[in-house]
Structure formats: structure tokens, C-alpha cells
Computed example of a mutant assay.
Amino acid sequence: MRTIIYYFTGTGNSLAAAKTIAAGLSDCELVSIASLRNTPGDIVPPAGRVGIVCPVYDAGLPVIVAAFAHRLSLAGTRYVFGIVTLGGAGGTSALRQLDHILKERNSRGLSAAFDVKMPGNFPPVHRPPEGKEKDGILASADGQLTEIAGRIQKGEQVPVGFSLFAWLMHAATYRFFSGSVHAGDKKFSVSDSCTSCGTCAKVCPVGNITMVQGRPAWQHHCELCCACLHFCPVEAIDLHSMQGTKGRGRYRHPALKIEDMKAQAEGNR
């Protein structure tokens, strides 16, 4: 059965997950959700099996992924799976949100739903793990994803789980997050250590950064994926939220490259 996996990633965890799943399936294509953001009309996958892979933001979906799900037409699709990557809590609530959107749009939801723990990488909340701790989390995730790919290949039905804590967290925080995320880039700053390399603009999946007089300028359609923060080679970018990010480490999946992020934005994968 032909499979299309739609993905969104900020630091590479979800892209790595999508690639591992794709490797376990036959005739599978990866498609960037970010590359479809400005296309008109419904999205009709030419595949019998469809997957959506993304991170968890504030116990819910990235806003760009929620908007994509509202446009997704599944009339010709027999099996739909969702996989969310996360460093903390909120996986079940994000999957329930996705399931609900798909049911509203298509009168059917997810055939299978999975959450996978990967290194937390939102520095105001998670100080990214390093060394053996990071390697252990990634190795465990790889094993889980390989198992998940096998279950998807068999067409297993895996219902969306429920966590009261995740549901309460989603109810308490997600509405504010989704309503303010695009202007959340006002909390980014760039220090004098900036080298004007332009990496931040290159990796932004939604083209939210332009270089003005050699320094990044955010354009207020941010998804708060923090790719700009994590990819800066001199850590010149900080996010002033909660505990802030200065001195709290940076992270990207070890297999992720700048070219992968550019491909995500442009749809060249």
C-alpha cells in the first residue's frame, strides 16, 4: 500500500521519526507540512495510507499542523496514523486534538496513535539532555519507532489514549499558546555575538526570518519551533520566556542538517 507521511519538525526529532517509520514501510513518501502552508484548497493524499508526524507544543499540535489537518481530505484513504514526539507530557492530548480535527473534517479519525519520547528541546522548559542521557533517549526512541512501523505495516488499530493530566494541561495552556504563537517571536533577541551568517533565516520552516543589516528580523508568523535558536552556531539568539534560554543549552537531532530544514520549507525532499 502506498503511504504518505506528512511531517513538521523544528529540531529534527519528528523528521527522524518520520524517516524511521518510512524505512519500515514499502512505497512511502515524506511530504513537508510547511511546504503546503500557502497552497490553496483541500489536501487530498494520493495514497491508501497516511501518517502525520509532529512534535507536541503546549500539550497540543503545532498551529501549522492543526491548520493542515483541517484541510486534509481522507476520502480515498484506508488507514491514518498519527505520531507525536515529545520531551515531557501532553502526547495523548495532542493526538486527541488531531483525532478530533480529522473526525470533524472527514467523519473519521486516526486508525492508530502513538507518542514517542525524544530529547526535550524547548529550553525555557527543558534543559536539553546531553551525552549518554541524550544517546539513551534516542536509542530507546529508535527501537520504539521500529516497532511502531511494524504495527502500522500490519494495519493494527491503536486507539488514542487518555491522560487526565495531559488533558488538563491542554485545557489550561493551549488556547493561549495557539492564539499568541505567531507573535511569540517578539520574545526572541539576538546578541552582539551574531556573525550575520544567516543560518537562522535558512532553517526557519515558515520563512519567518529575514536578514536586515546582517541581523535576523522576525516577521510575526512564527510557529515557535525554535529552529533559529538551536541552529545558531554561536548561540546568539535567546528566547525570553519563563526561565529564558541563556545558558540552558541547545539541541538538534544529530542526523539533522541545515539542508533538511531548507528542504522542509521548500518541499524538496
Results as ranks from 00 to 15, higher is better:
Ser140Met: 01
Thr146Phe: 01
Ile152Arg: 07
Val116Ser: 09
Thr11Tyr: 13
Tyr6Leu: 09
Ser178Glu: 15
Gly87Glu: 05
Leu229Glu: 07
Ala172Arg: 04
Lys154Glu: 14
Pro123Cys: 07
Gly214Ala: 12
Pro216Ala: 07
Met242Phe: 13
Val50Asn: 01
Cys194Ile: 12
Tyr174Ile: 05
Leu72Lys: 03
Ile64Arg: 05
Arg250Leu: 01
Gly87Gln: 03
Ala16Trp: 07
Ala166Pro: 00
Glu223Phe: 04
Gln144Asn: 09
Gly24Tyr: 10
Ser241Val: 14
Arg49Asp: 06
Lys117Phe: 03
Leu164Val: 10
Lys117Pro: 00
Val31Ser: 10
Ala69Asp: 13
Tyr6Gln: 12
Ser178Tyr: 04
Arg96Gly: 10
Met211Ile: 15
Asp27Pro: 00
Glu147Ala: 08
Gly10Trp: 05
Ser35Arg: 09
Asp135Val: 01
Cys197Gly: 12
Gly198Cys: 13
Leu30Gln: 01
Leu30Asp: 05
Gly247Thr: 08
Ala59Ile: 06
Phe114Ala: 07
Ser189Asp: 13
Leu30Arg: 00
Ala17Leu: 01
Ser73Asp: 15
Asp27Ala: 01
Arg248Trp: 02
Lys117Cys: 03
Ala69Ser: 14
Lys103Val: 10
Thr210Asp: 15
Ser32Ile: 10
Pro46Ala: 15
Ala263Val: 09
Asp99Val: 08
Glu29Gln: 15
Pro40Lys: 08
Ala263Met: 08
Val125Asp: 13
Pro124Tyr: 05
His170Gly: 01
Pro123Glu: 08
Glu29Asp: 09
Ala113Asp: 00
Ala112Val: 08
His70Met: 10
Met169His: 00
Gly10Gln: 05
